[in-house]
Deep mutational scan, measured.
Amino acid sequence: EVYKVKIKIERVLPNGEKVEEEITIEVEGMSEEELLALARELAAEPGVRIKEIEIEKLPP
């Protein structure tokens, strides 16, 4: 199964400015739980906050 994972994050820059970013990846052969863990890892940097995680199962 192939999933499209869209992660919206908010990053706080050293000057205090907040910037929103969106990361989209396609992943194959992982469960939804593994995808959530991967998304959290991607956003685990200091000053980064996850705003939204969207997981979509793509048709075969």
Rank of each mutant, 00 (worst) to 15 (best):
K6Q: 03
L42Y: 15
A39G: 04
P46E: 05
K51Q: 05
P46G: 07
P60T: 10
M30Q: 09
V2W: 13
E28T: 13
E21V: 06
A43P: 02
V48H: 02
E52D: 14
L13F: 12
P14N: 09
E45F: 14
E28R: 02
A44N: 10
P14L: 14
A44D: 05
L13S: 08
E1K: 08
P46Y: 15
Y3R: 02
E52I: 10
I25F: 12
V12E: 11
I53E: 00
E52Q: 11
E34N: 12
E20I: 10
A37S: 09
G47N: 10
E45N: 07
V27S: 06
E45G: 12
V2N: 09
V19R: 11
K18E: 06
P14T: 08
V27D: 02
V12D: 08
P14E: 11
G29H: 09
E32K: 09
E26A: 07
P59I: 15
G16Y: 02
E54K: 09
L42S: 03
V12G: 03
P46Q: 11
I23V: 08
L42H: 10
K57D: 02
I23M: 14
I53F: 07
L13N: 04
G47A: 05
E28L: 14
I7Y: 05
K8M: 04
I50G: 00
E33S: 15
G16F: 03
E56G: 07
T24A: 10
G29L: 04
K8Q: 03
A44Q: 06
T24S: 06
T24Q: 06
K51L: 14
R11Q: 01
E26N: 06
V19I: 13
E17C: 13
I7W: 03
I50Q: 00
A43C: 06
E33V: 15
G47Q: 03
Y3K: 01
P14S: 09
L42Q: 04
I55G: 01
V48M: 06
I7C: 02
E56V: 11
E17Y: 13
K6T: 05
V48G: 03
N15E: 04
M30P: 04
E21L: 11
P60N: 06
I25D: 01
G16V: 00
K18T: 12
I9V: 10
L58A: 09
P14D: 11
V5R: 00
E10N: 02
K51Y: 12
I50W: 02
L38M: 12
I25L: 07
I53S: 00
I7D: 00
V2P: 03
V27G: 07
P46A: 11
K8T: 14
E56C: 07
R49L: 11
T24L: 12
A37G: 12
K6Y: 11
K18P: 05
E56P: 02
E1P: 09
A43N: 07
P14M: 13
L38W: 15
E22C: 10
K8R: 10
R49H: 13
R40I: 06
K4S: 04
K4D: 00
I23R: 04
K18V: 09
E32W: 09
R49A: 09
E10V: 09
L38A: 03
G16L: 04
K18G: 05
T24M: 10
M30V: 07
L36D: 04
A37F: 15
L58T: 09
T24D: 07
E26F: 11
G29I: 04
K57H: 05
E52V: 11
R11A: 01
K8H: 08
K57C: 04
E28P: 09
E54V: 15
E10G: 01
I53G: 00
R40K: 04
V48P: 00
Y3W: 15
V19C: 07
V19L: 07
V12I: 08
A43Y: 11
V48R: 02
Y3F: 07
K6A: 03
M30A: 07
Y3E: 00
R11M: 03
E20A: 03
K57G: 07
R40V: 06
L58E: 05
P14V: 07
E41M: 13
E56F: 13
A37C: 10
E32S: 11
E52Y: 13
M30I: 11
N15V: 01
L38Q: 02
G47D: 08
P60C: 07
E17T: 14
V19P: 01
L58F: 08
E20G: 03
P60I: 08
L13H: 05
I25H: 03
E33L: 15
I9L: 08
K4G: 02
K4H: 05
V27K: 06
P60F: 01
I25K: 04
E54M: 15
E56Q: 14
R49T: 07
P46S: 11
E1A: 13
E17A: 10
V19M: 08
P60D: 09
L35V: 11
R11D: 00
E17H: 14
E52M: 10
N15F: 04
E28A: 10
A43I: 13
V27Y: 08
E41Y: 14
E22K: 04
E21C: 09
E33N: 13
A39V: 14
K18M: 15
I23F: 09
E54N: 15
E26P: 02
E33D: 12
I55L: 09
E33Q: 15
E32D: 09
I53R: 00
E26V: 10
M30E: 07
E17F: 11
K4N: 04
K8I: 11
E28I: 11
G47H: 08
P59K: 13
V19T: 08
E32T: 14
G16C: 04
R11I: 03
E21W: 15
K18L: 11
E34K: 14
K4L: 04
L42D: 00
L58K: 09
I25T: 03
I55Q: 01
V27M: 12
V19D: 03
I25N: 01
R11N: 01
E21G: 07
L58P: 06
L36W: 15
L38R: 12
S31P: 12
E26L: 11
A43Q: 06
A39P: 01
E33T: 14
K6G: 01
E21S: 10
V48T: 08
L36C: 06
L38G: 02
P60L: 04
S31D: 08
G47W: 04
E45Q: 12
P60R: 02
S31M: 08
K4E: 02
V5T: 01
L42F: 08
E21R: 07
I25C: 04
E21Q: 13
L38H: 04
E21A: 08
E1M: 14
E28H: 05
A39S: 06
